[in-house]
Amino acid sequence: MAQSLFNIIVFPGFLFLCLAGVCAEYFDRIFHARMQNRKGPPWFQPVADFIKLSAKEDIIPEEADSFMFRAMPVVAVAATVTSFLYIPLWGSQALFSFEGDVIVVLYLLTIPTMTFFLAGWYSTSLYASVGAVRTITQLFAYEVPLFMAVLAPALLADSWSLSGIAAYYRAHPLYWVFNLPGLAVSLVILLGKLEKVPFDIPEAETEIVGGVFTEYAGRYLAFFRMTIDIEMVVASSLVAAVFLPFGLGFGSVVGFILYLLKVTAVIAAICLLRTIFARLRIDQMVDFCWKYIAPAALLQLLVNIVLKGVLSQ
């Protein structure tokens, strides 16, 4: 019991995730800055931002639904942290696992996006409402390809549990190479999930001010920003666990370093993608997802179905 509580709250649960989120945000920002030939923020900037925001006044608009407005940031953080517990980080065993946790993790990762929608919707301001509608439109566009892309490796591994998938690829060390198209698909989708350029349409600053977060200030905004940071780590870990399951059998120290490297690589890839593209329009985004990303994910699924037949013989 005490062990589980420690795992959930301290390591690798909430506190570890907060730290990892801060580091991820810092890395993302400094790498982004350096690619743009800027200096970038000092190392403590994400923490300083969090402290500054927390110290500010919490403003809840009169028109907004006060309960939902305050509840959404907390729900978002809770959902993201929970999903992390089912992802194997080093080795092939997650902290908790059961048959079918892939679906649960994907579902839990959808919740932050849903909370963004609800937060925007219950803010009732024009910009926030437009942002909320865009969030949900975008969700429909990328969620299906993401499911297909993540379920393809699971299909090959014949397991609906992330730990089971990891165990399968540990047993067959080179099979992850077949999932590379899925990796590309999921990297693109992560941009949408984390609302980064070119898919930062719901909070496009120059178009709709701050999108769903327009009305948010102070602590609640700090919580939302933390959610996005944590989501970045969780989603990168998911991608690393599903698509990059190599080097799992070298003990926990090597495994942990390798895990950090994988997550860093995924975040670096996301950062590179967000640096070199312009923001798409919502209709272009939906078109792009259904025209290119969904068929690519479908292809991955087909490849894995065929492979499964071939390999099982």
């Binding site: 800055a33 350096r34 690619m35 743009q36 030939n37 800027r38 200096k39 970038g40 640096t275 070199i276």
Partner: peptide, 12 residues
């Protein structure tokens, strides 16, 4: 271009 610049000192 951006990857080349990521290793260079900042312009600022």
């Amino acid at each position: 271009e951006v990857l080349r610049h990521s290793l260079k000192p900042p312009a600022t």
